[in-house]
Amino acid sequence: MEHTKHIWRISLLLLLVLIGAVLGRHFLIPDSFGKAGFYRYDALVELMGKEPVHGAPDSCADCHDEKALAKAAGLHRSVQCEVCHDVLSSHIRDDDKYADMAINRSYKLCAYCHQKLVARPAAMVQVDIAEHLELAPGDAIPAEACLECHDSENIHAP
């Protein structure tokens, strides 16, 4: 057809753009994409492969046998060591101790579970700490108030 040269040219140009886009896209898709679904499968492998921070339950008993046995017989038996202490990986690396375990002696740690709250199930052992210590109103609770009476032995096997 006459007088359609420019139409053919622009059609060709658009075709080239299209081919470029399709090819470019093809090379930019990550390798493992779509292997199991519409996602990068390697992302799943990476997520699954991350190192755990908390140890397996009762890992501590490996070395701290006595404490573990005492705790297993006490009221705190259902509380994992890492709830009150720090995580295993802050203390053990490649099956060996590499750093001291941080010990939290604050009354706040106890208060997390035992401060009296209306929303807590009634069966839970709970006290109003300020009242329990017979503090005057407005007095601050001493930092290690709980441990002064309830010592470590007491806590592991109350």
Partner: peptide, 19 residues
């Protein structure tokens, strides 16, 4: 920008118009 085509005949403009 004109893609090297300098055709501004009425016929070509009529085609343009239809498109």
């Amino acid at each position: 920008v004109a893609l090297g085509v300098y055709d501004i005949s009425d016929e070509s403009r009529a085609i343009d118009h239809r498109i």
